[in-house]
């Protein structure tokens, strides 16, 4: 079966299988590089949906094990969180910082 290059791999950023294969062909050979080059994994889900898919494609295209191409660093806050929740969490009121602070 031939695979469809228009398949969306990263849904948040709308990145296709074909784009990832092209990026690998261009020499971008790790998930981190694909993230910086294509934004795959930078969307609201932070790569939770696409990370392992991108890793598999990159590993397959480069002939390397997944562990070698995917040392991606998870970035806080890990879940989408509104500023208002952060403020409530810390008991902070919305105080205007004083000049000179």
């Amino acid at each position: 079966m031939t695979e469809d290059d228009s398949t969306i791999i990263c849904r948040c950023e709308d990145i296709t299988l074909g784009e990832i294969k092209q990026a690998v062909a261009r020499g971008y050979a790790t998930v981190d590089e694909i993230k910086h080059y294509l934004r795959a994994g930078m969307g609201p889900c932070q790569g939770r949906t696409c990370g392992h898919l991108v890793a598999q494609v990159v590993a397959r295209e480069t002939g390397r094990p997944v562990a070698e191409v995917w040392p991606m660093r998870a970035r806080p806050p890990y879940h989408l969180v509104p500023f208002s929740t952060i403020l409530a969490e810390t008991g902070g009121t919305v105080a205007f910082p004083k000049v000179g602070d």
Partner: peptide
């Protein structure tokens, strides 16, 4: 969260994706 919502209060409801 403190600084930005005092300058731009409307952002209180905006969700942080990543730091």
């Amino acid at each position: 969260a403190r600084a930005v919502t005092s300058l731009l209060p409307i952002l209180a409801g905006v969700r942080v994706i990543r730091q």
